[in-house]
């Protein structure tokens, strides 16, 4: 996983719960990297899952909630460093299509080996967009958080539901985004 995710996770934890918690997480997690993260390196996915799991334990929330909170928080950060073309969308659904067709394409140019999720759009109406979230990392809750972050950014209220979820023993993850109002 790209180092930027770990760097941003540390910023998120420090900003939300303070430096002490981050320090505590690193000391308890016993990570191969010793928590020394830089954006120019990649780190074992497992370190991310360990840290998120620990956050859940420490703060009395589920892993899903932790991922979702981090996703919502990181959206603005990622949006700021998103490639050109990612800032031209004003509608949530349009943006989600753009993630697949523009942002991931640009990211691939810079990181040909990068592992990116894929969206298979299954249904779309004026108010509802349903898509198959495909990623071996199974970060569908993190993705949900990102969508809420996007929702705040464009000031368009939505609800996200996991119509199907691998975490609930389904064969795949299907997210449904519905515009409110």
């Amino acid at each position: 996983m790209k180092g930027v995710v770990f760097v941003k996770l540390s910023e998120f934890v420090e900003e939300t719960w303070g430096l002490a918690l981050w320090d505590e997480l690193l000391q308890e997690a016993d990570l191969a990297s010793d928590g020394i993260y830089t954006t120019v390196c990649v780190y074992d996915d497992q370190e991310f899952f360990s840290l998120v799991s620990l956050i859940g334990n420490k703060k009395g929330i589920t892993v899903a909630q932790a991922q979702k909170a981090f996703g919502e928080w990181i959206f603005t950060e990622l949006y700021a460093i998103a490639p050109p073309g990612a800032h031209d969308f004003v509608d949530i659904f349009e943006f989600l299509h753009g993630v697949q067709n523009v942002i991931h394409v640009e990211v691939k140019k810079l990181n040909p080996d990068g592992l990116l999720p894929e969206f298979d759009f299954l249904f779309e109406s004026e108010k509802t967009l349903r898509f198959h979230y495909k990623s071996p990392r199974k970060l569908c809750y993190f993705c949900e958080g990102l969508i809420y972050g996007l929702s705040k950014h464009v000031n368009q209220e939505v609800t996200v539901s996991h119509v199907e979820c691998e975490h609930n023993n389904d064969d795949r993850c299907v997210l449904e985004v519905s515009k409110v109002g």
Binding site: D23, Y37, T38, T39, C41
Partner: peptide
């Protein structure tokens, strides 16, 4: 102590980043 550890991590991270660079 917390800040010291943070600075230490960040210094090491910088070194790694520079090596990587």
């Amino acid at each position: 102590q917390l800040l010291k550890r943070k600075i230490e991590r960040e210094q090491k991270a910088r070194q790694i980043a520079e090596q990587q660079l």
